[in-house]
């Protein structure tokens, strides 16, 4: 467990997050987001939270970013589009950057004490997670399944071709 490395990784993640919300190009923003997610994973490993670190890398830096890549592949990133995006972003970046900036406030205030770093981390195994998911947290697990059903119903409907009745009501 190395606090120095953990704080270094968190700083890199913070810098990458600030840059990610200020870039005009979606591809650059995505790469910076990936950098932020990977440095967070490094931070978890540095705090000996190996399981959380592995999940962070596999699910967030891996799977979630892969989905973003599919979307970005459909985006036009030519010079004209970049100029338009830059024009749009001239003022729009301020609020997202401010919100990202706010996330560093507790680090400034709470770095000296508080709940941070108290006690040794307990070893976390996949079996412990399974016991939690179907033990104390089973209610949350069931609610997530309902959430997935709602998402699936909505996405399935959106992905369907417009039938004649809908097309008539929705002329292009």
């Amino acid at each position: 467990m190395s606090w120095g490395l953990a704080i270094w990784a968190a700083t890199v993640a913070f810098g990458a997050a600030i840059l990610a919300v200020t870039r005009p190009s979606a591809v650059h923003a995505l790469l910076l987001l990936l950098a932020a997610l990977i440095s967070l994973g490094v931070g978890f490993f540095a705090m000996a939270a190996n399981f959380a670190g592995a999940i962070q890398l596999l699910i967030y830096a891996g799977a979630v970013v892969a989905v973003f890549v599919f979307v970005v592949m459909t985006i036009d990133a030519g010079d004209e589009a970049m100029a338009a995006e830059r024009e749009l972003l001239r003022h729009a970046w301020r609020w997202p950057a401010l919100i990202v900036g706010l996330s560093v406030v507790p680090v400034i205030f709470g770095i000296g004490g508080g709940a941070m770093g108290e006690g040794d981390p307990a070893p976390a195994l996949a079996s412990d997670l399974g016991l939690l998911m179907f033990g104390d947290w089973s209610a949350a697990t069931e609610l997530i399944t309902l959430l997935l059903i709602a998402g699936m119903l909505g996405v399935r409907h959106l992905g369907r071709k417009l039938g004649p009745r809908l097309r008539e009501r929705n002329p292009e």
């Binding site: 947290w137 959430l147 709602a150 119903l153 909505g154 409907h157 417009l162 009501r169 929705n170």
Partner: peptide, 25 residues
């Protein structure tokens, strides 16, 4: 906190899906 967040999402997401159903502008 977990049920607070999940409950909030569980009321929002069906609303979004239902709202998009007619696919009018």
């Amino acid at each position: 906190g977990a049920t607070l967040f999940l409950g909030l999402e569980l009321t929002t997401l069906p609303m979004v899906a239902l709202a998009l159903m007619p696919r009018t502008e």
